[in-house]
């Protein structure tokens, strides 16, 4: 897979979406070395909604960052649709994120003093879309998260739930094949948390966007159809969530 493939190719069939093989992640060296991940094997297929749970320091976030090509494993391989991510350059990884991944953060990470519309447009700016198409798609994404009419409000003028929905709009505006959500409801109250989870579920079911979500709230995890428990840098349990998994 070369750079132009990264720019254009749609979902590649015949490969698992995500495949981690014996992935280690070590922070620091020698005595101070901290093993965040120890030999993690993980396979995620297209269309899944996976919740990663576990106490802090269990490695769930580190695993998520590796999946998002934001961090690189110390050892082991990560294949994304059959592509060996470890062998990609920094720019190629950026292109992979740009075209396939959407990120949702606990802290929303919106640009302040910037309108919701401009925030949602941002990934499209990096894709080099002309202004008119950019606006149209950003408006559509905002509408999809129920923020029609809020286009010109800046994050400071929006509630936490609204801000997270803007962030979700920004993540889905590029039509990613996978959404990576790092504690998306961590800063929200339970009512807004449920709204956000409903949105995510909707995207997962109707647009078959694969979702990997880190959370430590069992209620939020229950929206997923597969729950992975991390403990001490290893996958402790990996279960389907009831009958919802088809």
């Amino acid at each position: 897979m070369n750079q132009s493939d990264l720019d254009t190719s749609p979902v590649r069939s015949g490969y698992s979406l995500i495949e981690l093989a014996k992935v280690d992640k070590v922070y620091g060296t020698g005595q101070a070395a901290m093993h965040a991940l120890r030999g993690v094997d993980l396979r995620i297929d297209a269309g899944e909604f996976v919740a990663a749970m576990g106490p802090s320091g269990s490695g769930k976030s580190t695993c998520m960052n590796i999946l998002g090509c934001l961090d690189t494993p110390t050892a082991g391989d990560y294949h994304f649709q059959g592509v060996h991510v470890g062998k990609l350059t920094r720019d190629q990884q950026a292109r992979l994120r740009r075209h396939y991944l959407g990120f949702i953060f606990q802290g929303f990470n919106l640009l302040n003093r910037t309108s919701a519309l401009e925030n949602v447009e941002l990934p499209l700016v990096y894709r080099g879309l002309p202004a008119a198409r950019r606006h149209a798609r950003a408006r559509k994404a905002l509408e999809a998260v129920g923020l029609k009419g809020w286009e010109h409000h800046s994050p400071g003028e929006l509630s936490g739930g609204q801000q997270q929905r803007v962030a979700i709009a920004r993540a889905i505006v590029t039509d990613p094949i996978i959404l990576l959500a790092d504690e998306p409801t961590g800063n929200l109250d339970s009512a807004t948390s449920r709204e956000v989870m409903n949105l995510l579920t909707e995207f997962n079911r109707q647009q078959s966007i694969t979702i990997v979500m880190v959370t430590h709230e069992p209620e939020m995890a229950s929206y997923a159809n597969r729950i992975i428990h991390f403990r001490d840098g290893q996958i402790f349990t990996d279960k389907k969530n009831g009958e919802e998994r088809q």
């Binding site: 934001l70 920094r90 950026a94 740009r98 959407g102 990470n109 990934p123 993540a171």
Partner: peptide, 11 residues
């Protein structure tokens, strides 16, 4: 960080 995460290239 956010810009890099959503796919901005180094350059």
């Amino acid at each position: 960080g956010t810009r890099l995460a959503i796919g901005a290239l180094e350059r």
